[in-house]
């Protein structure tokens, strides 16, 4: 299966349309309730974001229009196909990293970091071997040491309050 670059272009257009929708939804609800959606330059906090959102809207419309014009016939760049199989690894990376970030707060740095590094290394093609496990643990501890000892950063301890008194 493949995805064409022009499809990604349309996803970006949809993203910006959603952003513009959120801007106006906030202006007509939250900002109006606060009384900051009208008045002069001092009181009206909504005029500037509204103007920027309208500008984005116009630019996105132009971009979409150009996209449609180019669609007949499609340019080589727009028609460039990206195999979905190629996206497996980045998707896997984001999944691992997302799970790591979600668990970092509840479980803490020391329980989650080495497994994340190990998983990313395996995803990158390294063998599941003792060396990979050892490297993961060493990287996690060296960085924790550097940040906690030299930079006085308190890393998340999680529900078990796991923090190393270096």
């Amino acid at each position: 299966m493949t995805m064409r670059k022009k499809h990604i272009g349309w996803m970006v257009v949809a993203f910006f349309v959603a952003i513009i929708a959120v801007v106006f939804q906030q202006i007509y609800t939250s900002m109006t309730e606060q009384g900051i959606a009208s008045g002069g330059p001092y009181d009206n906090a909504a005029a500037y974001p509204a103007a920027v959102a309208i500008l984005i809207g116009i630019l996105v419309l132009l971009q979409a229009g150009l996209g449609l014009l180019r669609a007949l016939p499609p340019s080589d760049e727009e028609n460039e196909a990206i195999s979905l199989a190629r996206l497996k690894r980045p998707a896997g990376l984001l999944l691992i990293f997302g799970i790591y970030l979600a668990l970092l707060g509840p479980l803490g740095y020391h329980l989650t970091t080495a497994p994340m590094i190990f998983a990313v290394m395996v995803l990158c093609g390294m063998r599941i071997a003792l060396v990979t496990i050892a490297v993961s643990v060493v990287i996690a501890f060296v960085l924790a040491f550097a940040f906690e000892v030299f930079l006085k950063v308190v890393l998340p301890g999680g529900i078990f309050a796991l923090n190393i008194p270096w």
Binding site: V120, V135, S136, I139, L143, L151, L155, P156
Partner: peptide
């Protein structure tokens, strides 16, 4: 190899942003 660098960069991003 990049297989070492990628997790290190991700970890630096995480600790740095959390800090």
């Amino acid at each position: 190899p990049k297989s070492y660098l990628i997790p290190i960069v991700l970890l630096l991003c995480t600790i740095g942003t959390f800090a």
